[in-house]
Write a protein that binds this DNA or RNA. Structure first.
Lengths: 171, 171
DNA sequence: ACACAAAGCGTATAAATATACAACATGAGG
DNA sequence: CCTCATGTTGTATATTTATACGCTTTGTGT
């Protein structure tokens, strides 16, 4: 992951707010951050100097939550973006966000997703209305994709690859 | 929803801790609770008298998180019970606890479980990361298991038998 | 250029949450 | 019965997070 941010500063040496929010989002996605103080230090390492008060406001505006790590700790999380926008672009984003892997068995395809994302991804696949896909069934993190008659593995891989070049698809 | 709790109190008039935790879980499930103070009042209405300190400890032990409501507010949430312990031993226990039977159809396997256990068992099967299994889809008491290419029925039976000798598997 | 409104920030402080500590309760072993 | 180890709680306090207030910046209309 590469962080890109402008170095534009005003006379008060403040980084642009949106840039800071982006950096914060990246930190929260990548690391398990337990407190604003910890985040403050991480930002300081990146030469982003703000106070705890600003951070508190930033987190609220990002709608960041705090959840258990399963043991004794807590860490910040970004909210699930289950937006209701109904555009192809949005569906592709949903797929990209949840996708982990794709495999085949017989005439079925099995897509693994992040936990809880299967529904969102399957919904997106349905709404894309692809000829190659007859239907999908979603569990929690697995989607069964029923391929249309005569559709080969490479067809569906090509189809997905064309729409979302970033996906790590099977050969 | 009916709340059931014992009225057993000791000489310090304290309700049983587990009972209180159950009541708290119910509240958190049903309502959007934004602070410990609010929860304190709700409990008081049910004649459960504790201090904020105890509540803080209760929430931590329940691994309760706090997430955005999408607007300006935050509310408590219980963690997904799926992501708890992540050890092979634990997964095998989950399978043993829920397993009822296994059957085959084509290149698919169908596992029956105790009602409500399918998700837990399927999650465990997934996380064991077996070569023989391409994916699973869980309903309430049934799991569809998609076998990997070239895997025979006896392969999957052997595999499960080796890991969990106690299971009653098909001959 | 000027006035005004809106947004962003830091300081100081308030509000919310966590915890150190000591008291009491409970259960196991002697 | 006693003693020790463990667990639960309240009080008081520490830590963490949110916000009121005043200042600076930026944009907009005149």
């Amino acid at each position: 992951m590469l962080y890109i941010y402008t170095l534009c500063v005003n006379k008060y040496n403040m980084l642009d707010r949106n840039t800071r929010l982006t950096i914060i989002k990246n930190f929260i996605t990548e690391k398990k951050i337990a407190s604003q103080e910890q985040l403050l230090l991480l930002l300081k390492e990146r030469n982003v100097h703000v106070t705890q008060a600003t951070l508190s406001r930033d987190l609220k505006s990002l709608k960041v939550g705090k959840v258990s790590d399963g043991n004794r700790g807590y860490y910040y999380t970004l909210p699930d973006q289950k937006m209701n926008k109904e555009t192809t672009e949005h569906f592709l984003e949903d797929i990209t966000r949840g996708y982990i892997s794709l495999a085949f068995a017989g005439n079925l395809a099995v897509m693994h997703t992040l936990p809880g994302h299967a529904n969102t991804v399957a919904f997106a696949l349905d709404r894309l209305d692809l000829d190659e896909i007859t239907g999908t069934i979603a569990g929690d993190d697995t989607i069964l994709i029923i391929l249309s008659d005569g559709v080969e593995r490479k067809d569906i891989v090509n189809c997905l690859e064309q729409m979302i070049p970033d996906l790590e698809l099977p050969k």
